[in-house]
Design a protein around this nucleic acid. Structure first.
Lengths: 225, 225
DNA sequence: AAGCGGCGTAAAGCCTTTGTAAAGTCCTAA
DNA sequence: TTAGGACTTTACAAAGGCTTTACGCCGCTT
């Protein structure tokens, strides 16, 4: 997941489109404030910040990201308008992972995003997944592989955990049983089975009062919200 | 269908034979130019490009494919002669989906072709629903499978949702009951039934004030506008 | 204006999908 | 080998959507 902060609608849509076409998940924001809300729910794999923004500028957002514990290791690419400005910004060295001067080509853009992500993956491959999800009173810490409901730890089995993680990774998105089987159980499960339903049931049970965050979408699958 | 560009006759035939034996449809070309003609007629599921080619090299072909709208999402496997060259090419990161260093074994070749195709299938089926429709005060988000009217979420059942999606996918176009039955209910519904009317009714009801975007075209069918 | 066919709508029964308990299977650790 | 836990399957109950039936209205044709 990549978060973009860019005030210009056209540029924002171009970037979003380019990245989505290349298979990335993208969320774009008009300003840092709106993004902050989203960051509380889910941290991305990469930030792309425009420098010139109305209100709080990109450099300031970068500073804040570098201070916060849950975002300080996430790579950041800064976008800047002019070449001259670029040098100045680079000179500041606030710890961005790459700088791209506008205007830029789509291919260059994608390629540099890939490069930054590749580098970051490599360096954090020990840390594996720094996935931290929260929704309602349910939190999921993928490093500890622990889940809490209202602050109380809940013991989940492997499949239950993976299932919850999958659903929570995209709140609001519906996953079909087929998709769930493919992602968690592995390959082409074509068979008619109630296994997923079963695990949904135990999950709901273990989540207690928060069990209702897992919703059934009849004829389609399940989602959390 | 897989397209191969390879100048060496023996290698070309080996690859073609290997893939055909594994059940793939293959067309092999000596250079990019010849292939371009064929691409105009039909786009394949996968390109396999040799890098070292007389005239235009594989990297250049790749670049062109990535720019063209109808080929930019099709996976590409690059073939390269030496290990050292391989690293260099990988570093360029022009967006190939896999790189294979010559010489390679048939089994590896097939296995990597399969892997790339599998990945591409998966991601395309996930991204398939990047569908976001809006019309009047009605929005339809196909990832979340959610519909809003004037910003308020509306709960739709499966058939209702599919019906709205179908109609909204082509605003202004009239769909006959027959067409609707075929698309949403599956095949050959030949019977005389009021089922579609029924669902149109509940849809209009649930869309509230915006229910009027669904219009009846007497003797023909329904449309939205 | 009357008849006819198409459409809107309500209600009820049917049928598919989902929830759930319980039994069965598989795997792992002692 | 056995015991325990996790996972899977089976069977049945519950829920909810889907379809049908029935009837009234409306517009078009004659």
């Amino acid at each position: 997941m990549i978060y973009i902060v860019e005030d210009d609608v056209e540029v924002r849509e171009m970037e979003t489109y380019a990245l989505k076409s290349s298979g990335f998940d993208v969320m774009a924001f008009e300003c840092g404030k709106v993004m902050d809300e989203q960051v509380k729910t889910r941290v991305p794999d990469l930030f792309i910040l425009d420098i010139m923004l109305p209100g709080e500028d990109g450099l300031n957002i970068l500073k804040r990201l570098r201070v916060q514990e849950n975002t300080k290791d996430i790579p950041v690419i800064m976008l800047t308008a002019k070449g001259t400005e670029l040098d100045k910004v680079k000179g500041l060295d606030l710890g961005a992972d790459d700088y791209i001067a506008k205007p830029f080509g789509v291919l260059e853009f994608i390629s540099r995003v890939r490069a930054v992500l590749r580098r970051s993956e490599r360096s954090s491959s020990e840390n594996a997944e720094a996935l931290n999800l929260a929704l309602g009173g349910v939190t999921l810490d993928d490093q500890r592989r622990s889940v809490t409901v209202g602050g109380i730890a809940v013991e989940l089995t492997f499949k239950e955990y993976e299932l919850l993680k999958l659903l929570m990774s995209r709140p609001g998105t519906v996953f079909s049983r087929q998709q769930i089987l493919e992602k968690i159980w592995g390959v082409d499960f074509d068979m008619d089975t109630r296994t997923v339903d079963m695990h949904i049931k135990t999950l709901r049970q273990k989540l207690g009062v928060q069990g209702s965050i897992i919703q059934t979408v009849r004829n389609v699958g399940y989602k959390v919200q």
